[in-house]
């Protein structure tokens, strides 16, 4: 908003419209990062193949986080890869969004009681859309991405979240040393 923003000029309709245009442009050219973790990654790839073809929504995979603005967490995030997920998220270009795909990424899913699994990727990075399923079918992922598009295009819901979700325990530490009281 540097072009139009000025102390003297009141907040007027032009800024709002430009906002809408920018949001529209952003929402129509989401470039996800190629980062498959587990089972959901195969369904994520399937969403970009002829049957479902997410390419027609203007989404193209980028191999480098610097060129991407969307991260699809497709699979179980465990304690060993959690720091890498966080680093990749920090490397994404602003503005950036995260879609959590599948039960494991949402809240640990069937493995959530295990010693090596982070209970949901939202303990590490802020998540915009959660897609349930184990794994979700490609169309379900697409519905999540369309939901994200609505979120971006809607000005009131514009991206404003803390960069790292706060948890009451150390996500990266080994069990017994993460400051959590086990539920037995």
């Amino acid at each position: 908003m540097g072009l139009l923003g000025s102390e003297a000029r009141p907040q007027n309709i032009i800024v709002g419209t430009l906002d809408d245009v920018i949001n529209l442009a952003r929402s129509r050219s989401l470039w996800p990062l190629t980062f498959g973790i587990a089972c959901c990654a195969i369904e994520m790839m399937a969403a970009w193949t002829p049957k479902v073809d997410a390419d027609r929504l203007g989404m193209f995979f980028r191999n480098s986080p610097r060129q991407a603005d969307l991260m699809i967490i497709s699979g179980t995030v465990n304690k060993k890869i959690a720091s890498r997920v966080k680093r990749l998220y920090e490397q994404l270009a602003e503005p950036k969004w995260v879609v959590s795909m599948g039960a494991c990424a949402n809240q640990g899913g069937p493995f959530r009681q295990g010693y090596s699994v982070v209970e949901g990727v939202d303990k590490i990075v802020p998540v915009d859309v959660y897609v349930p399923g184990c794994p979700p079918r490609p169309e379900a992922l697409l519905q999540g991405l369309l939901l994200l598009r609505d979120k971006i295009a809607d000005r009131k819901l514009r991206y404003q979240q803390p960069r790292v979700a706060l948890t009451d325990y150390d996500v990266f530490a080994e069990p017994g040393k993460d400051g959590r009281v086990p539920v037995l």
């Binding site: 465990n78 060993k80 493995f111």
Partner: peptide
């Protein structure tokens, strides 16, 4: 990096 404690 995908150790999900299956066996445990």
């Amino acid at each position: 990096f995908l150790h999900r404690n299956h066996e445990k």
